[in-house]
Amino acid sequence: MQTVQSKMLINRKRLLEIIPLSTRTIYNLELRGEFPRRIALTCRSVAWDLSEVEAWIEARKASSIQADRPGEERR
């Protein structure tokens, strides 16, 4: 018998309360594979898996690498 773990999904408003970045910045991070992907619930509604967002936050806290700045190249 398989056990299905329930996932807590958060909408854009809640995501922006947790992650102090602009919607565009989050979208760009998603495109580069650097942020959890959104889940399309309907054609006009998206959500994110809260556990994935929390894991992303923890990974950022644990990383000593500074985030890229727009227009700067990695060294």
Rank of each mutant, 00 (worst) to 15 (best):
R14E: 15
N11K: 13
W56I: 03
I57W: 03
L29G: 06
I65G: 00
R74C: 06
R74Y: 11
E72H: 12
E30I: 10
R60S: 07
I39H: 10
I57D: 05
E72F: 14
A59Y: 01
K13A: 15
T25Y: 06
L21A: 12
L31F: 01
K7S: 04
R44W: 00
A67S: 12
E58M: 06
E17D: 15
I10H: 02
K61A: 10
C43P: 01
L21R: 15
E30K: 06
E58D: 10
S6V: 04
E54S: 03
L50P: 00
S45L: 05
G71T: 08
R60W: 01
N28G: 01
K7R: 10
P36D: 06
R12M: 15
L9R: 07
E72G: 03
D49Q: 03
A47G: 03
I18N: 05
A67Q: 12
R75W: 11
S51Q: 11
G71H: 09
P20C: 12
S6K: 11
R60E: 09
E52G: 00
V4E: 10
K7A: 04
Q5D: 00
A55S: 10
W48I: 07
G71C: 07
N11I: 01
I39K: 06
R75Q: 12
Q66Y: 06
A55H: 03
N28A: 14
C43R: 13
M1L: 04
L29M: 15
T23N: 14
T25A: 15
R69G: 08
E54F: 02
L21D: 07
R38F: 07
M1Q: 04
L29F: 14
Q2Y: 01
E58T: 05
D68F: 06
N28P: 01
N28E: 13
Q66V: 10
N28M: 11
D49V: 13
A40K: 15
A62Y: 05
A62I: 04
R38Y: 06
R14K: 15
L15A: 10
N28V: 07
M1H: 03
R12G: 00
I18T: 09
S63K: 09
W56S: 05
T3Y: 00
A47Y: 01
I19G: 09
S6A: 07
T23Y: 09
E34G: 00
W48N: 04
R24T: 15
P36K: 03
L29H: 12
Q2C: 00
S51V: 01
R12Q: 13
R44C: 03
T23M: 05
L15T: 11
P36H: 05
R32H: 09
M1A: 07
E54T: 02
R69A: 12
R32M: 11
G71D: 07
M8G: 00
N28C: 04
A40V: 02
L31R: 15
I39G: 00
S6N: 06
I57V: 13
R32E: 14
E58N: 09
P20A: 13
A62T: 10
V46R: 02
T3N: 03
I26M: 10
L50F: 02
R44N: 14
K61L: 13
L31H: 08
I65R: 12
A55T: 08
R37A: 13
S64D: 12
T3F: 01
